[in-house]
Design a protein around this nucleic acid. Structure first.
Length: 555
RNA sequence: UGCCGAAUGGUGUAACGGUAGCACAACGGACUCUGACUCCGUUUGUCUAGGUUCGAAUCCUAGUUCGGCAACCA
């Protein structure tokens, strides 16, 4: 899929194609500019797929750039995790990642240029005064008394700000634009603030840091970005983005900012702040908790890069604030995993079955297909013996007509093995079923019989003697509300799903011990799983990625 | 009551003045050694009101609704 015409169009793809066709640019250059203050989530994946995707599609390049202009919030830990996540998603960037902090010296020079052009001034209003002077949307602001400070004095003060002569917050550099603008961002916005804080890369070199609006457009220009794609909340910043670029000396063409709607998915939250809260308050085990919408969490959960990329493509790119159904994400993983995951059998809620007419000490193996969707996946041998486990849900003592599974006197097929008929039910004092007595038909070895009789149900099973005990972590949506952060007067934590994690001990096919964390597997008739990093061959742990679709649902 | 932006089935998206299409979801059916997969079918839509036009989801006007913006955050 390298031909853009094969994909459904969206306005950004159309715009880039038009820009290229018009000769506005000779090559496309985009960037993905995360701030290293948290882990990447599925919302970032949309942006990553867009930015890297457009570059790939049009034969250009996309930079990974850390927008690290605020040392108090950023950390090295995040830098490494972000690069790993982008790579995992399947994208690469030219050379080393870029850092806004690499441009601090250049940015400083651009700030000096603005001062020299009388387009910036040092202001000593306190933050409270600053806010007061800015005014409100419906009323113009008023000009700072320092607005007319002479250029030489501005230059001197700005140099002394850099030299560390003043404490945090004492002075700020402001762009001189228009205090009466209906756009608040144009009312002489602050562009540099004093922060005596160690930066994760530049250390103590600086105590003066540029603010986003000033820094970001310059980062784009310095890197020769042609299309600066960001989310809708920056739409009102665009006039300032353009103003900065137009008022300093820069080669043309200048980068242009285009905004698109961020991703929202039902039953989850998508802000770094809220995700951080979940981590800090221990509602989840960490950023990589499989219930988190973070890429690291989804990876641990068993989501594949291909599934996430397909999802991002299907969600589309628009300027409309939408809420995408989690079911679409689930569909995308199932679609991918159905083709790639090997099948195995695992019983999550075991019910013992004794095959009365099967010799006590005998055992044999049956050949099972690893993946019906992929012949090259081959087959495996599955051990069978007199005592087995089946799923408790696959038996009903008094089943309704439409129940295809096991019941007294009923015959079913054991997947890849043989037919069995239930001949007796053993119960404990409470009357709960503890064991099933069955007989098998040796003629049905392999799953069919010479007389050609049909059975409606096929059950998965595990030989009691050969099966491995495994911890299985069943994950469900983290929230009970489709829009946990969209309910008036309620906090998103009010909607945490207390049953989002259920841990069971299952009995699994021996061959499952060989699976490595991240490797996808389908437990037949149950769902898609992957071993957790906690998993060990002698103590396997599986995370449920997604259930299988269930067309029966117990009706 | 300021500015910016957006409105197409339950959800997400396409159409670029010429038959409103696709996907997810839901429902029904076929197939089936996974009640999976696959296949077939059904239901549901252009925010409202005017206007331009042979013809409007698309262009114009007015309105309605929703989202964003008042960190020395990004």
């Amino acid at each position: 899929m390298t031909d853009p015409s094969e994909k459904p169009s969206h306005f950004i793809r159309d715009m880039i194609a038009a820009d290229l066709a018009a000769g506005k640019h000779t090559a496309v250059k985009t960037r993905f500019p995360p701030e290293p203050n948290g882990y990447l989530h599925i919302g970032h994946a949309k942006s990553i797929c867009l930015n890297f995707g457009m570059a790939l599609e049009f034969g250009g390049a996309c930079n990974l750039r850390y927008d690290d202009t605020n040392p108090v919030k950023e950390d090295r830990e995040y830098v490494d995790a972000i690069a790993e996540d982008v790579r995992w998603l399947g994208f690469s960037w030219p050379g080393e990642p870029c850092y806004a902090s690499d441009y601090f010296e250049k940015m400083y020079a651009f700030a000096v240029e603005l001062i020299e052009k009388d387009l910036a001034y040092v202001c000593t209003l306190t933050p409270e005064e600053f806010k007061d002077y800015r005014g409100v949307p419906t009323r113009p602001g008023k000009e700072s008394p320092h607005r007319s400070r002479p250029t030489a004095e501005n230059l001197d003060l700005f140099a002394r700000m850099r030299a560390g002569e003043f404490p945090d917050g004492a002075y700020v550099l402001r762009a001189k634009i228009d205090m009466a603008s209906p756009n608040l961002h144009l009312r002489d916005p602050a562009i540099y603030r004093i922060r005596h804080a160690a930066h994760h890369r530049t250390g103590d070199t600086w105590c003066l840091y540029p603010i986003y609006d000033f820094a970001h457009c310059l980062e784009d220009a310095i890197e020769g970005i042609t299309h600066s794609l960001c989310t809708l909340e920056f739409e009102v910043h665009r006039p300032l983005y353009d103003w900065i670029l137009q008022n300093v000396t820069l080669p043309k063409p200048l980068p242009e900012q285009t905004e698109f709607a961020r991703l929202n998915i039902t039953y989850t939250v998508m802000s770094k702040r809220k995700l951080l809260t979940l981590v800090q308050e221990n509602h989840v085990s960490g950023w990589d908790d499989p219930r988190m919408p973070t890429l690291t969490g989804m990876r641990r959960r068993g989501f594949t890069p291909a599934a996430i990329r397909t999802f991002c493509e299907r969600v589309g790119i628009t300027k409309f604030n939408s809420l995408t159904d989690y079911a679409l994400l689930e569909f995308c993983v199932r679609e991918d995993l159905n083709k790639t995951a090997e099948r195995r059998m695992a019983v999550l809620n075991p019910l013992k079955v004794v095959i009365e007419n099967y010799p006590e000490d005998a055992e044999e193996t049956f050949e099972a297909v690893n993946n019906p969707e992929d012949e090259t996946a081959g087959t495996r041998q599955v051990p069978f013996s007199r005592e087995l486990y089946i799923e408790r849900d696959d038996f009903m003592e008094d089943p309704p007509k439409k129940f295809f599974r096991l019941g007294p006197g009923r015959e079913v097929r054991l997947r890849a093995a043989c037919y069995i008929t239930c001949t007796g039910v053993v119960k404990d004092e409470q009357g709960d079923v503890t064991e099933l007595r069955c007989t098998w038909d040796p003629e049905s070895r392999g799953g069919g019989t010479p007389d050609g009789r049909k059975v409606k149900g096929t059950l998965h099973w595990v030989s009691a003697k050969h099966g491995l005990k495994a911890e299985v972590r069943l994950y469900d949506r983290l929230f009970t509300e489709p829009e946990p952060d969209g309910v008036d007067g309620k906090d998103f934590r009010d909607f945490l799903n207390l049953d989002s994690l259920q841990v069971v001990t299952g009995c699994v096919e021996p061959s499952l011990a060989e699976f490595a964390p991240g490797a996808p597997v389908q437990f037949e008739r149950i769902g898609y799983f992957t071993p957790d990093p906690d998993s060990r061959p002698d103590a396997p742990v599986f995370n449920r990625t997604a259930t299988l679709r269930d067309g029966w649902k117990g009706k």
